[in-house]
């Protein structure tokens, strides 16, 4: 199409401020948050998570029952006004126990994720920073650890350290940091070669500034994603280990412990298995969906 003078008309309206025309600038994180809010699945799973987390904190308080008070007269009750989720074979209130268990499961998952992230970032950062033979040797260590079935390492570690909470945390995060370390190393190596870092260095930015201002914020998105996908994995693994009798053991409580107890009485009192299993599923589903939403929000390029 040929453009002539007739194609344009002079604007005769109110004078506009050029700054206003451009719109106010939106930071990356505001943008991410906006995209998450627009995603109904993510909002829904965020809400579900909030409800579960709140209940796992206040649930044992509002039920009016104690975690360990045994009441043989009220054993194996169905849900009622007195015991909202019924009682177990010793007459303990299941509502209290289920939320206690959920709390333990979530705490285990969060602490493991924290360990994984911190160790992974440090290890990956050191690898990327030093490079050369240090990188080579440290990479070999990772390859060695990842070339063994993870579950076996976890089980062996649990055996050595015993069945406590600390042992579980160590055993579950002993291999998982490798993936994070690799990710961070790759990301930093890639970012360091990028043009804006070169530009910053050319403008006289100190290494400290480059790390603080460019490397960390740009790695953060990927890190968030790893965290979001790690948490449900840990909740799974914990439940599985406890189910096999290798993880936490009674009197400790977690969703896995409750499920393994529930399986023993499944044929007669399915209610005792239903509630912990249901909460485990919802918890994991919510984390997974939120993770999916987060991935779309963090990197719109991945969207089809």
């Amino acid at each position: 199409m040929e453009l002539t003078n007739i194609s344009f008309k002079k604007y005769r309206g109110r004078r506009l401020d050029p700054d206003q025309l451009a719109g106010h600038s939106v930071t990356y994180w505001k943008d991410v948050w906006r995209r998450i809010r627009k995603n109904p699945t993510a909002v829904l799973s965020l809400a579900a998570l909030m409800i579960i987390l709140t209940l796992s904190v206040i649930g044992p308080i509002i039920s009016g029952h104690d975690l360990s008070t045994i009441n043989p007269k009220r054993a194996n009750m169905n849900p009622s006004a007195e015991n909202w989720f019924g009682t177990d074979n010793l007459g303990r209130d299941l509502f209290t126990r289920v939320w206690y268990g959920a709390r333990a499961s979530v705490i285990v998952a969060l602490v493991c994720t924290l360990i994984q992230t911190v160790v992974g970032c440090l290890y990956g950062g050191i690898m990327a920073h030093f490079g050369g033979w240090v990188d080579e040797v440290m990479m070999r260590v990772i390859e060695l650890i990842t070339s063994m079935p993870t579950l076996l390492i976890t089980i062996l570690t649990m055996m050595v350290l015993g069945n406590g909470m600390t042992a579980l945390l160590v055993a579950m995060s002993i291999t998982s940091w490798c993936g994070t370390a690799r990710l961070i190393r790759g990301q930093i190596m890639q970012l360091r070669e990028s043009e804006y870092v070169l530009a910053a260095v050319a403008l006289g930015a100190s290494p400290f500034w480059v790390i603080l201002r460019h490397l960390i914020p740009n790695t953060f998105g990927l890190l968030m994603l790893t965290i979001a996908t790690s948490i449900p994995d840990y909740i799974f693994t914990e439940a599985g280990l406890s189910f096999l009798g290798i993880g936490l053991q009674p009197p400790n409580t977690s969703l896995g412990v409750l499920i393994s107890i529930g399986q023993q009485t499944m044929d007669f009192f399915p209610i005792q298995l239903l509630f912990p299993a249901l909460i485990l599923c919802v918890l994991v589903l919510a984390f997974n969906l939120l993770g999916d939403g987060l991935r779309d929000a963090l990197d719109p390029r991945l969207r089809q």
């Binding site: 189910f243 499920i259 299993a277 485990l280 589903l285």
Partner: peptide, 15 residues
């Protein structure tokens, strides 16, 4: 697919 990923085969087996 997302639903199935989120149901641990532990629970699925029991179910």
């Amino acid at each position: 697919a997302i639903l199935f990923i989120s149901i641990p085969h532990l629970i699925f087996g029991l179910l």
